[in-house]
Design a protein around this nucleic acid. Structure first.
Lengths: 209, 209
DNA sequence: GTCTATATCCTGATAGAC
DNA sequence: GTCTATCAGGATATAGAC
Protein backbone atom coordinates (compact mmCIF):
# COMPACT_ATOMS: atom_id res chain seq x y z
CA UNK A 1 0.00 0.00 0.00
CA UNK A 2 1.11 3.59 -0.59
CA UNK A 3 1.32 5.83 2.48
CA UNK A 4 -2.42 5.73 3.14
CA UNK A 5 -4.84 6.27 0.30
CA UNK A 6 -4.93 9.65 -1.38
CA UNK A 7 -2.13 11.40 0.46
CA UNK A 8 0.92 11.01 -1.77
CA UNK A 9 1.78 14.66 -1.46
CA UNK A 10 -0.79 15.88 1.04
CA UNK A 11 0.34 19.26 2.33
CA UNK A 12 0.87 19.62 6.04
CA UNK A 13 -2.31 21.64 6.65
CA UNK A 14 -2.68 21.55 10.42
CA UNK A 15 -1.17 18.09 10.61
CA UNK A 16 2.57 18.54 11.06
CA UNK A 17 3.47 14.88 11.50
CA UNK A 18 1.21 13.02 9.18
CA UNK A 19 3.86 10.58 7.98
CA UNK A 20 5.16 9.94 11.44
CA UNK A 21 1.61 9.09 12.43
CA UNK A 22 1.26 6.76 9.46
CA UNK A 23 4.44 4.89 10.32
CA UNK A 24 3.30 4.63 13.94
CA UNK A 25 -0.15 3.33 12.98
CA UNK A 26 1.18 0.70 10.61
CA UNK A 27 3.81 -0.35 13.11
CA UNK A 28 1.35 -0.79 15.96
CA UNK A 29 -0.92 -2.70 13.66
CA UNK A 30 1.87 -5.03 12.58
CA UNK A 31 3.18 -5.44 16.12
CA UNK A 32 -0.25 -6.33 17.42
CA UNK A 33 -0.71 -8.93 14.70
CA UNK A 34 2.72 -10.60 14.69
CA UNK A 35 4.05 -9.63 18.08
CA UNK A 36 6.56 -6.84 18.73
CA UNK A 37 9.63 -9.07 19.07
CA UNK A 38 8.65 -11.21 16.10
CA UNK A 39 8.39 -8.15 13.85
CA UNK A 40 11.57 -6.71 12.34
CA UNK A 41 12.09 -3.26 10.94
CA UNK A 42 12.42 -5.02 7.61
CA UNK A 43 8.87 -6.33 7.99
CA UNK A 44 7.65 -2.84 8.78
CA UNK A 45 9.57 -1.44 5.80
CA UNK A 46 7.88 -3.93 3.47
CA UNK A 47 4.48 -3.03 4.94
CA UNK A 48 5.19 0.64 4.24
CA UNK A 49 6.81 0.03 0.87
CA UNK A 50 9.92 1.76 2.14
CA UNK A 51 13.47 0.74 2.86
CA UNK A 52 14.50 0.07 6.43
CA UNK A 53 16.65 3.15 6.61
CA UNK A 54 13.90 5.45 5.35
CA UNK A 55 11.81 4.61 8.37
CA UNK A 56 14.36 6.25 10.61
CA UNK A 57 13.64 9.59 9.01
CA UNK A 58 10.25 9.46 10.77
CA UNK A 59 10.98 7.71 14.03
CA UNK A 60 13.86 7.41 16.45
CA UNK A 61 13.87 3.71 17.18
CA UNK A 62 11.78 0.58 17.14
CA UNK A 63 11.41 0.74 20.89
CA UNK A 64 10.09 4.29 20.58
CA UNK A 65 7.20 2.96 18.51
CA UNK A 66 6.42 0.43 21.21
CA UNK A 67 6.60 3.01 23.97
CA UNK A 68 4.24 5.34 22.13
CA UNK A 69 1.79 2.53 21.52
CA UNK A 70 1.82 1.36 25.11
CA UNK A 71 1.36 4.89 26.42
CA UNK A 72 -1.61 5.39 24.11
CA UNK A 73 -3.26 2.30 25.52
CA UNK A 74 -2.39 3.15 29.11
CA UNK A 75 -3.57 6.75 28.80
CA UNK A 76 -6.92 5.66 27.44
CA UNK A 77 -7.45 2.95 30.02
CA UNK A 78 -6.38 5.32 32.77
CA UNK A 79 -8.95 7.82 31.54
CA UNK A 80 -11.64 5.16 31.85
CA UNK A 81 -10.92 4.92 35.55
CA UNK A 82 -10.69 8.67 35.96
CA UNK A 83 -14.21 8.94 34.58
CA UNK A 84 -15.60 6.05 36.63
CA UNK A 85 -14.10 7.32 39.85
CA UNK A 86 -15.25 10.89 39.16
CA UNK A 87 -18.94 9.91 39.15
CA UNK A 88 -19.66 11.20 42.63
CA UNK A 89 -23.31 10.40 42.18
CA UNK A 90 -24.14 6.78 41.58
CA UNK A 91 -23.30 3.61 43.46
CA UNK A 92 -19.98 1.82 43.39
CA UNK A 93 -21.78 -0.85 41.45
CA UNK A 94 -22.73 1.73 38.84
CA UNK A 95 -19.13 2.92 38.67
CA UNK A 96 -18.00 -0.64 38.11
CA UNK A 97 -20.49 -1.12 35.30
CA UNK A 98 -19.27 2.10 33.72
CA UNK A 99 -15.68 0.95 33.97
CA UNK A 100 -16.50 -2.34 32.29
CA UNK A 101 -18.44 -0.63 29.54
CA UNK A 102 -15.84 2.06 28.93
CA UNK A 103 -12.98 -0.44 29.03
CA UNK A 104 -14.60 -2.42 26.25
CA UNK A 105 -15.15 0.73 24.23
CA UNK A 106 -11.51 1.75 24.60
CA UNK A 107 -10.38 -1.77 23.78
CA UNK A 108 -12.37 -1.71 20.55
CA UNK A 109 -11.49 1.85 19.61
CA UNK A 110 -7.77 1.33 20.27
CA UNK A 111 -7.59 -2.36 19.52
CA UNK A 112 -4.01 -2.57 18.22
CA UNK A 113 -2.36 -0.58 21.01
CA UNK A 114 -4.43 -2.22 23.75
CA UNK A 115 -3.66 -5.64 22.28
CA UNK A 116 0.02 -4.76 22.37
CA UNK A 117 -0.26 -3.67 25.99
CA UNK A 118 -2.03 -6.84 27.05
CA UNK A 119 0.78 -8.94 25.60
CA UNK A 120 3.67 -7.07 27.16
CA UNK A 121 5.82 -9.31 29.28
CA UNK A 122 9.39 -8.42 28.32
CA UNK A 123 12.26 -7.18 30.44
CA UNK A 124 13.26 -3.96 28.70
CA UNK A 125 12.77 -0.66 30.49
CA UNK A 126 9.90 0.35 28.21
CA UNK A 127 8.08 -2.89 28.89
CA UNK A 128 8.74 -2.79 32.61
CA UNK A 129 7.44 0.77 32.83
CA UNK A 130 4.30 -0.23 30.96
CA UNK A 131 3.79 -3.18 33.28
CA UNK A 132 4.10 -0.88 36.29
CA UNK A 133 1.51 1.53 34.92
CA UNK A 134 -0.76 -1.34 34.04
CA UNK A 135 -0.50 -2.77 37.53
CA UNK A 136 -1.68 0.55 38.95
CA UNK A 137 -4.73 0.44 36.71
CA UNK A 138 -5.45 -3.12 37.79
CA UNK A 139 -5.26 -1.99 41.41
CA UNK A 140 -7.81 0.73 40.77
CA UNK A 141 -10.13 -1.82 39.21
CA UNK A 142 -9.83 -4.06 42.26
CA UNK A 143 -10.69 -1.08 44.44
CA UNK A 144 -13.80 -0.48 42.36
CA UNK A 145 -14.88 -4.10 42.73
CA UNK A 146 -14.16 -4.03 46.45
CA UNK A 147 -16.35 -0.96 46.88
CA UNK A 148 -19.21 -2.57 44.98
CA UNK A 149 -18.88 -5.66 47.13
CA UNK A 150 -18.80 -3.62 50.35
CA UNK A 151 -21.95 -1.91 49.16
CA UNK A 152 -23.67 -5.29 49.01
CA UNK A 153 -24.23 -5.14 45.27
CA UNK A 154 -22.01 -8.13 44.55
CA UNK A 155 -22.15 -11.59 46.03
CA UNK A 156 -19.92 -11.86 49.10
CA UNK A 157 -18.72 -15.43 48.69
CA UNK A 158 -15.97 -14.47 46.24
CA UNK A 159 -12.78 -12.51 46.85
CA UNK A 160 -12.98 -9.05 45.20
CA UNK A 161 -9.45 -9.47 43.90
CA UNK A 162 -10.43 -12.71 42.21
CA UNK A 163 -13.62 -11.16 40.85
CA UNK A 164 -11.66 -8.29 39.36
CA UNK A 165 -9.10 -10.57 37.73
CA UNK A 166 -11.75 -12.77 36.17
CA UNK A 167 -14.10 -9.96 35.17
CA UNK A 168 -11.43 -7.93 33.39
CA UNK A 169 -9.81 -11.12 32.18
CA UNK A 170 -12.99 -11.70 30.23
CA UNK A 171 -13.05 -8.09 29.04
CA UNK A 172 -9.43 -8.19 27.91
CA UNK A 173 -9.88 -11.52 26.18
CA UNK A 174 -11.86 -9.61 23.57
CA UNK A 175 -8.55 -8.37 22.18
CA UNK A 176 -7.67 -11.90 21.13
CA UNK A 177 -10.44 -12.35 18.61
CA UNK A 178 -12.44 -9.14 18.05
CA UNK A 179 -11.55 -7.52 14.74
CA UNK A 180 -12.69 -4.32 13.03
CA UNK A 181 -15.80 -4.97 10.95
CA UNK A 182 -16.61 -7.90 13.20
CA UNK A 183 -20.21 -9.11 13.41
CA UNK A 184 -20.35 -7.63 16.91
CA UNK A 185 -20.10 -3.95 17.75
CA UNK A 186 -18.99 -2.48 21.05
CA UNK A 187 -22.56 -2.21 22.33
CA UNK A 188 -23.32 -5.88 21.72
CA UNK A 189 -20.07 -6.96 23.34
CA UNK A 190 -20.68 -4.74 26.35
CA UNK A 191 -24.17 -6.16 26.77
CA UNK A 192 -22.93 -9.73 26.46
CA UNK A 193 -20.13 -9.29 29.00
CA UNK A 194 -22.36 -7.46 31.47
CA UNK A 195 -25.16 -10.00 31.10
CA UNK A 196 -22.91 -12.99 31.63
CA UNK A 197 -20.87 -11.52 34.44
CA UNK A 198 -23.63 -9.85 36.44
CA UNK A 199 -26.65 -12.06 35.69
CA UNK A 200 -25.00 -15.35 34.77
CA UNK A 201 -25.44 -17.74 31.90
CA UNK A 202 -28.05 -19.98 33.43
CA UNK A 203 -31.42 -19.72 31.77
CA UNK A 204 -33.61 -17.41 33.89
CA UNK A 205 -37.24 -18.02 34.80
CA UNK A 206 -38.77 -21.34 35.95
CA UNK A 207 -35.48 -23.03 35.40
CA UNK A 208 -33.22 -25.69 36.71
CA UNK A 209 -32.79 -23.77 39.91
CA UNK B 1 20.65 -23.26 39.33
CA UNK B 2 22.36 -26.59 38.63
CA UNK B 3 20.53 -29.00 36.33
CA UNK B 4 17.66 -29.55 38.76
CA UNK B 5 18.43 -30.26 42.40
CA UNK B 6 20.15 -33.47 43.28
CA UNK B 7 20.62 -34.99 39.85
CA UNK B 8 24.20 -34.12 38.90
CA UNK B 9 24.93 -37.67 37.80
CA UNK B 10 21.55 -39.32 38.14
CA UNK B 11 21.70 -42.63 36.29
CA UNK B 12 19.29 -43.19 33.47
CA UNK B 13 17.10 -45.69 35.36
CA UNK B 14 13.96 -45.79 33.24
CA UNK B 15 14.38 -42.17 32.23
CA UNK B 16 16.39 -42.14 29.04
CA UNK B 17 16.15 -38.44 28.30
CA UNK B 18 16.28 -36.75 31.63
CA UNK B 19 18.49 -33.93 30.48
CA UNK B 20 16.54 -33.33 27.33
CA UNK B 21 13.46 -33.05 29.53
CA UNK B 22 15.24 -30.60 31.81
CA UNK B 23 16.25 -28.37 28.91
CA UNK B 24 12.70 -28.51 27.57
CA UNK B 25 11.16 -27.63 30.93
CA UNK B 26 13.46 -24.68 31.53
CA UNK B 27 12.97 -23.47 27.99
CA UNK B 28 9.19 -23.57 28.16
CA UNK B 29 9.33 -21.82 31.48
CA UNK B 30 11.55 -19.06 30.13
CA UNK B 31 9.55 -18.72 26.93
CA UNK B 32 6.31 -18.41 28.86
CA UNK B 33 7.79 -15.70 31.07
CA UNK B 34 9.67 -13.58 28.52
CA UNK B 35 7.97 -14.61 25.30
CA UNK B 36 9.39 -17.05 22.76
CA UNK B 37 10.69 -14.47 20.31
CA UNK B 38 12.12 -12.28 23.06
CA UNK B 39 14.12 -15.18 24.47
CA UNK B 40 17.44 -16.07 22.84
CA UNK B 41 19.32 -19.33 23.07
CA UNK B 42 21.88 -17.29 24.99
CA UNK B 43 19.24 -16.51 27.61
CA UNK B 44 18.36 -20.18 27.85
CA UNK B 45 22.03 -21.12 28.13
CA UNK B 46 22.48 -18.73 31.06
CA UNK B 47 19.38 -20.16 32.73
CA UNK B 48 20.84 -23.65 32.39
CA UNK B 49 24.38 -22.61 33.28
CA UNK B 50 25.52 -23.99 29.97
CA UNK B 51 26.99 -22.57 26.81
CA UNK B 52 24.78 -22.02 23.82
CA UNK B 53 26.41 -24.80 21.87
CA UNK B 54 25.99 -27.35 24.65
CA UNK B 55 22.24 -26.97 24.42
CA UNK B 56 22.31 -28.39 20.93
CA UNK B 57 23.56 -31.68 22.29
CA UNK B 58 20.09 -32.12 23.83
CA UNK B 59 17.79 -30.51 21.32
CA UNK B 60 17.64 -29.96 17.59
CA UNK B 61 16.55 -26.37 17.36
CA UNK B 62 14.85 -23.55 19.21
CA UNK B 63 11.73 -24.04 17.15
CA UNK B 64 11.65 -27.71 18.14
CA UNK B 65 11.32 -26.64 21.76
CA UNK B 66 8.39 -24.43 20.86
CA UNK B 67 6.71 -27.15 18.84
CA UNK B 68 7.02 -29.65 21.66
CA UNK B 69 5.61 -27.17 24.14
CA UNK B 70 2.66 -26.26 21.96
CA UNK B 71 1.86 -29.90 21.27
CA UNK B 72 1.91 -30.63 24.99
CA UNK B 73 -0.63 -27.91 25.60
CA UNK B 74 -2.78 -28.87 22.64
CA UNK B 75 -2.76 -32.58 23.50
CA UNK B 76 -3.89 -31.87 27.04
CA UNK B 77 -6.60 -29.44 26.02
CA UNK B 78 -7.77 -31.81 23.32
CA UNK B 79 -8.03 -34.57 25.92
CA UNK B 80 -10.28 -32.32 28.01
CA UNK B 81 -12.76 -32.24 25.15
CA UNK B 82 -12.42 -35.95 24.46
CA UNK B 83 -13.46 -36.59 28.05
CA UNK B 84 -16.29 -34.08 28.04
CA UNK B 85 -17.73 -35.33 24.78
CA UNK B 86 -17.38 -38.98 25.88
CA UNK B 87 -19.77 -38.51 28.84
CA UNK B 88 -22.74 -40.12 27.13
CA UNK B 89 -24.75 -39.81 30.30
CA UNK B 90 -25.26 -36.30 31.54
CA UNK B 91 -26.66 -33.18 29.94
CA UNK B 92 -24.82 -30.95 27.52
CA UNK B 93 -24.79 -28.42 30.32
CA UNK B 94 -22.97 -30.93 32.51
CA UNK B 95 -20.47 -31.60 29.74
CA UNK B 96 -19.84 -27.89 29.43
CA UNK B 97 -19.26 -27.56 33.16
CA UNK B 98 -16.83 -30.48 32.99
CA UNK B 99 -14.99 -28.87 30.09
CA UNK B 100 -14.64 -25.61 32.01
CA UNK B 101 -13.44 -27.37 35.13
CA UNK B 102 -11.00 -29.65 33.29
CA UNK B 103 -9.68 -26.78 31.18
CA UNK B 104 -8.79 -24.87 34.30
CA UNK B 105 -7.10 -27.91 35.79
CA UNK B 106 -5.03 -28.45 32.65
CA UNK B 107 -4.19 -24.76 32.51
CA UNK B 108 -2.89 -24.86 36.07
CA UNK B 109 -1.11 -28.20 35.73
CA UNK B 110 0.58 -27.21 32.45
CA UNK B 111 0.75 -23.49 33.03
CA UNK B 112 3.93 -22.69 31.05
CA UNK B 113 3.03 -24.63 27.92
CA UNK B 114 -0.60 -23.48 27.92
CA UNK B 115 0.56 -19.90 28.46
CA UNK B 116 2.85 -20.26 25.49
CA UNK B 117 0.01 -21.62 23.37
CA UNK B 118 -2.32 -18.80 24.31
CA UNK B 119 0.24 -16.23 23.17
CA UNK B 120 1.03 -17.80 19.81
CA UNK B 121 0.39 -15.43 16.96
CA UNK B 122 3.43 -15.75 14.70
CA UNK B 123 3.71 -16.73 11.07
CA UNK B 124 6.12 -19.65 11.17
CA UNK B 125 4.88 -23.11 10.21
CA UNK B 126 5.05 -24.34 13.79
CA UNK B 127 2.96 -21.43 15.02
CA UNK B 128 0.47 -21.70 12.17
CA UNK B 129 0.00 -25.41 12.82
CA UNK B 130 -0.60 -24.74 16.50
CA UNK B 131 -3.13 -22.04 15.64
CA UNK B 132 -4.96 -24.47 13.38
CA UNK B 133 -5.13 -27.13 16.08
CA UNK B 134 -6.24 -24.54 18.60
CA UNK B 135 -8.99 -23.33 16.32
CA UNK B 136 -10.36 -26.86 16.13
CA UNK B 137 -10.50 -27.03 19.90
CA UNK B 138 -12.27 -23.68 20.03
CA UNK B 139 -14.82 -25.00 17.56
CA UNK B 140 -15.51 -28.02 19.75
CA UNK B 141 -16.06 -25.71 22.71
CA UNK B 142 -18.55 -23.66 20.72
CA UNK B 143 -20.37 -26.87 19.83
CA UNK B 144 -20.57 -27.75 23.51
CA UNK B 145 -22.01 -24.35 24.35
CA UNK B 146 -24.46 -24.57 21.47
CA UNK B 147 -25.72 -27.94 22.71
CA UNK B 148 -26.20 -26.62 26.23
CA UNK B 149 -28.10 -23.65 24.84
CA UNK B 150 -30.28 -25.88 22.63
CA UNK B 151 -31.04 -27.92 25.72
CA UNK B 152 -32.44 -24.81 27.36
CA UNK B 153 -29.85 -24.79 30.12
CA UNK B 154 -28.35 -21.49 29.04
CA UNK B 155 -30.06 -18.17 28.46
CA UNK B 156 -31.14 -17.81 24.85
CA UNK B 157 -30.59 -14.08 24.41
CA UNK B 158 -26.85 -14.49 23.73
CA UNK B 159 -25.11 -16.00 20.73
CA UNK B 160 -23.47 -19.35 21.66
CA UNK B 161 -20.36 -18.37 19.76
CA UNK B 162 -20.09 -15.19 21.78
CA UNK B 163 -20.76 -17.07 25.01
CA UNK B 164 -18.01 -19.54 24.23
CA UNK B 165 -15.50 -16.83 23.39
CA UNK B 166 -16.20 -14.91 26.58
CA UNK B 167 -16.46 -17.93 28.85
CA UNK B 168 -13.17 -19.45 27.74
CA UNK B 169 -11.67 -16.01 27.46
CA UNK B 170 -12.18 -15.74 31.19
CA UNK B 171 -10.78 -19.23 31.74
CA UNK B 172 -7.71 -18.55 29.62
CA UNK B 173 -7.10 -15.21 31.28
CA UNK B 174 -6.01 -17.19 34.32
CA UNK B 175 -2.73 -17.87 32.52
CA UNK B 176 -1.87 -14.17 32.72
CA UNK B 177 -1.67 -13.95 36.48
CA UNK B 178 -1.99 -17.36 38.18
CA UNK B 179 1.36 -18.60 39.42
CA UNK B 180 2.42 -21.81 41.18
CA UNK B 181 2.06 -21.45 44.95
CA UNK B 182 -0.59 -18.82 44.37
CA UNK B 183 -3.11 -18.13 47.11
CA UNK B 184 -5.73 -19.87 44.96
CA UNK B 185 -5.71 -23.53 43.99
CA UNK B 186 -7.41 -25.07 40.96
CA UNK B 187 -10.55 -25.91 42.93
CA UNK B 188 -11.06 -22.34 44.15
CA UNK B 189 -10.49 -20.95 40.69
CA UNK B 190 -12.89 -23.42 39.13
CA UNK B 191 -15.54 -22.54 41.69
CA UNK B 192 -15.06 -18.83 41.15
CA UNK B 193 -15.26 -19.03 37.37
CA UNK B 194 -18.29 -21.33 37.43
CA UNK B 195 -20.06 -19.18 40.01
CA UNK B 196 -19.51 -15.94 38.13
CA UNK B 197 -20.26 -17.30 34.70
CA UNK B 198 -23.27 -19.46 35.49
CA UNK B 199 -24.83 -17.66 38.46
CA UNK B 200 -23.57 -14.11 37.96
CA UNK B 201 -21.92 -11.62 40.26
CA UNK B 202 -25.02 -9.85 41.49
CA UNK B 203 -25.76 -10.48 45.12
CA UNK B 204 -28.41 -13.20 45.37
CA UNK B 205 -31.45 -13.12 47.65
CA UNK B 206 -33.74 -10.13 48.34
CA UNK B 207 -31.55 -8.00 46.15
CA UNK B 208 -31.52 -5.09 43.82
CA UNK B 209 -33.50 -7.02 41.24
C1' DG C 1 12.06 12.11 1.95
C1' DT C 2 14.05 8.08 0.02
C1' DC C 3 17.81 5.74 -1.41
C1' DT C 4 22.53 2.72 -1.23
C1' DA C 5 26.06 1.37 1.55
C1' DT C 6 27.77 0.31 5.76
C1' DA C 7 28.71 -0.28 10.84
C1' DT C 8 28.03 -3.06 14.74
C1' DC C 9 26.12 -6.37 17.20
C1' DC C 10 23.50 -10.45 18.04
C1' DT C 11 21.05 -14.55 16.33
C1' DG C 12 20.59 -19.67 15.76
C1' DA C 13 23.43 -23.26 14.66
C1' DT C 14 27.79 -26.26 13.57
C1' DA C 15 32.69 -28.33 13.97
C1' DG C 16 35.74 -30.45 16.51
C1' DA C 17 38.87 -30.70 20.77
C1' DC C 18 38.69 -32.60 25.37
C1' DG D 1 28.42 -33.90 27.77
C1' DT D 2 30.58 -29.49 27.74
C1' DC D 3 33.67 -26.60 25.92
C1' DT D 4 36.07 -22.91 22.46
C1' DA D 5 35.95 -21.20 18.06
C1' DT D 6 33.47 -20.03 14.28
C1' DC D 7 29.97 -19.39 10.71
C1' DA D 8 26.38 -17.17 7.87
C1' DG D 9 22.63 -14.42 8.21
C1' DG D 10 19.76 -10.95 10.18
C1' DA D 11 18.99 -7.37 13.69
C1' DT D 12 18.84 -2.17 14.68
C1' DA D 13 20.69 1.88 13.42
C1' DT D 14 23.72 5.54 10.94
C1' DA D 15 26.18 8.22 7.01
C1' DG D 16 25.80 10.53 3.18
C1' DA D 17 24.40 10.89 -1.90
C1' DC D 18 20.47 12.37 -4.55
Amino acid sequence: MPPLAGHPAAPRRGRPDYDQETVLRRAIDLFSRQGYHATSMGDLARELSLTKSSIYHHIRSKEDLLETALNEALDNLGAVLDRAEAHRTGSAYQKLCDAVEDSIEVLIAHLPSVTLLLRVQGISMVEQDALRRRRKIDDRLVTLVRAAAAEGALRDDLDPYLISRLLFGMVNSLAEWVRPNSRYDARQLTTAVATIVFDGLRAPGPGIG
